[in-house]
């Protein structure tokens, strides 16, 4: 069931959580389980934030419908696998390489495909879908369809007990790796916001998205900005892939699992401000955790997706966007 489900990110993390919960609190429906579930929701929020951030750049800022986003995550995971496999590198050390490699591939993609299709969202959507199939195919050709495993660094394994019972067993705990994911996600969000709102490069990007022709007249190299921004968004996806690679097995179709979720996060949060991604992932991750606690996981996913559809219907610009006159 898990292998089949196209977006099993919630499920897989939940099953883990349920095992934890069952092992920890045998009482079942009590405050401890609820707290564990909420903490687990935080873990999902981290993954959602990480995977959604890159998309918030490519779709939110550049308005590129990038259906190959999941494949850039997959590429990042493979970069980590290769570096760990070949040089025995620590997962943390591979993150910059994952960023660089996926950013370069992103730049090439922008140069050869995306650039021809600006102002044509549906064509871009189709082309990036073709690209996603091609990337999966090429990776499968190189690495075969076999599942690959990436090791998490030893100092990030284990759980941090927050509350212990009388016997000293942990009642409420959060795994270090989950905390690490959230830390990386928040750090990347902060870095990206700094880049966008405090540097001249960010100013140029915002200028180009607001008024391309005017920016051009004022001497901004719009083509370079486009390429750089898209490459940066892809690089972020690569980092997400590198970090996630230790949680799940690495395989060519893995990116598909994150695509729909990343889209839901970005659409929910709204594309006006980068901080919307955080809001979107918080809302979706925690809603999912709470509903899954009350009912069950697949139902939670269906309800959350349905809620997002209703949201798009009434507020296509996202929840956290200030209404503008058009």
């Amino acid at each position: 069931m898990l292998a089949f489900d196209p977006s099993s990110v919630f499920l897989s993390t939940y099953l883990l959580a349920q095992e934890e919960a069952e092992a920890v609190a045998e009482g079942g429906f009590d405050i401890v389980t609820l707290l564990n579930q909420a903490l687990n929701g935080v873990g999902i929020v981290g993954i959602l934030l990480l995977t959604g951030l890159g998309l918030a750049i490519t779709f939110g800022v550049m308005r590129i419908i990038n259906l190959a986003h999941g494949e850039f995550i997959m590429l990042g995971a493979y970069v980590t696998f290769v570096f760990q496999d070949a040089f025995g590198m620590d997962l943390l050390m591979t993150i910059p390489f994952a960023f660089l490699v996926t950013a370069i591939i992103g730049a090439v993609v922008e140069l050869t495909i995306i650039r021809r299709l600006y102002g044509n969202p549906l064509e871009t959507l189709l082309a990036t879908w073709g690209l996603s199939i091609v990337l999966q195919g090429v990776v499968k050709l190189i690495f075969t369809a076999q599942l690959k495993y990436v090791k998490a660094p030893p100092y990030l394994s284990g759980n941090l007990p927050l509350l212990s019972d009388d016997a000293g067993g942990a009642l409420i705990s959060i795994s270090y790796y989950r905390m690490f994911i959230i830390a990386v996600a928040l750090a990347l969000l902060g870095l990206t916001m700094y880049l966008f709102y405090k540097t001249s490069w960010g100013r140029q990007i915002r200028a180009v998205t607001q008024n391309r022709d005017m920016a051009k007249c004022l001497g901004v190299n719009t083509k370079l900005v486009d390429m750089g921004t898209f490459a940066y968004g892809c690089g972020l996806a690569g980092v997400a892939g590198a970090v996630i690679s230790a949680l799940k097995t690495v395989a060519p179709p893995m990116g598909q699992d994150y695509l729909v979720d990343a889209w839901m996060v970005v659409v929910t949060g709204g594309v006006d401000k980068l901080i919307g991604v955080l809001a979107g992932s918080l809302l979706i991750g925690e809603a999912n955790a709470v509903i899954a606690f009350i009912l069950n996981d697949p139902t939670a996913r269906v309800i959350v997706l349905a809620a997002v559809i209703v949201l798009i219907r009434y507020r296509p610009e996202g929840l956290f966007t200030i209404q503008k006159r058009s």
Binding site: R301, V302, L305, I309
Partner: peptide, 12 residues
């Protein structure tokens, strides 16, 4: 989203 949600629903 609909395709994804219904797949999950039918599987569950």
């Amino acid at each position: 989203a609909i395709s994804s949600a219904l797949t999950t629903f039918f599987v569950s």
